[in-house]
Structure formats: C-alpha cells, structure tokens
Design a protein around this nucleic acid. Sequence first.
DNA 1: AAGCTCTTCAACCGCAATCAC
DNA 2: TGTGATTGCGGTTGAAGAGCT
Length: 182
Amino acid sequence: MGRIPCCEKDNVKRGQWTPEEDNKLSSYIAQHGTRNWRLIPKNAGLQRCGKSCRLRWTNYLRPDLKHGQFSDSEEQTIVKLHSVFGNRWSLIAAQLPGRTDNDVKNHWNTKLKKKLSGMGIDPVTHKPFSHLMAEIATTLAPPQAAHLAEAALGCFKDEKRTTKLSTRLSLTFQRLRKRNLK
DNA sequence: AAGCTCTTCAACCGCAATCAC
DNA sequence: TGTGATTGCGGTTGAAGAGCT
C-alpha cells in the first residue's frame, strides 16, 4: 500500500550529476523540449527519474540561469518580497530573472536570515526583536515574560554581531524585572 | 598535518495542485 | 465528474569544501 513511487527506485541513479549526464539531458531538451518529464530520462538514455531530471534542468542547466553571487539589490528584493509573501519561494524567484526558487530558498536560509537577525530583525515577522519583546511583555504574565526575555538574552549574548540586540533585550529584561518586583 | 565543526547548496522527499482522459 | 498521472512547490537532508583548533 502507500504512495505510488514516481519511478522504479531500483533502476534509478541518485546523487550528484556527472557532466556526461548533464550533456545528455541538455542536448535531449534542446532537441525535444521539456514535455513529459517521465519519458525524458528514458529517451535521453539516463538512469534517472523524471523528477530528478526536471530539478536538474530547472535549477542548474537552464541556459537563462544566473550562477553567481546575489547582488545587494537582489537581496533587498528578496527581503521585501519575503516580508509580504513569506516562504513563497517560487513567487519571489519569479521577480528575480535567472534565479530559481531553490536558489532563493538556499540564499535566504544560509545568509539572509542570519543577516536580518544580526540587524536585530526577526526574519519571520520582519519586525525588530525589541518590538516583539515589547509585544510579549504586554501579552504574557510578568514572570513568564521575564523568564522568556532572560532565555532570549542568553541565546544572543555571545554573538558579536548582535551586541545592539543584546543591549535592547537587556533593557527590556530590566524593565520586566522592575515590573515583576512591583 | 589531522581531526573536528560549520557552512553551503544540490538533490531528494512527500504533499498539493493541475492536467488529461 | 471522478480518477490516475504528471508537475510544481516548500521543507529537509547530506556530501563536500572551508575554516578552526
């Protein structure tokens, strides 16, 4: 029972693509296009499943793709669009010519999330952490809020780049403690 | 130089949406 | 209109290289 596999896994190669496989796939698509991914590996003489071929083509082999670093303006676009659309990577990638959803997703997860956190901005809500802490302080009971602020402070105190954030959290924490003591 | 940890990113997985009949 | 096949999408994984001790 269960889900029908997209292909016979026993007869299918997995893992990194070789230049030879890339050539086979590229030249087949150049001649026949990308209709029916299920048949493409068979007809192109590849021991891969159609899904793997489609991914390789859309994320790496397509001739219109950019392969270099993301520019500052591309990064700004991603951050802006992410604040509106969230993790709708294909929607975001559609606004960046030559970039794929996988590219954008990887770049967000490895670079931009950290960059925003380092600037004291929550990468999920795109609000400053201090603002979120203030919101928490008004929502939770004082002892819980103080406990949470202390935990958050502990998470960030060793990060050089988050000194400002740490200072802000520290102030929030102090305010909560005062409130708690009243 | 060796071993360990961290970072990056290509590739995979499974679900949802869409298509074809 | 229902159903199976195909495609698209977002989350996750793991290999490889870089950096650190």
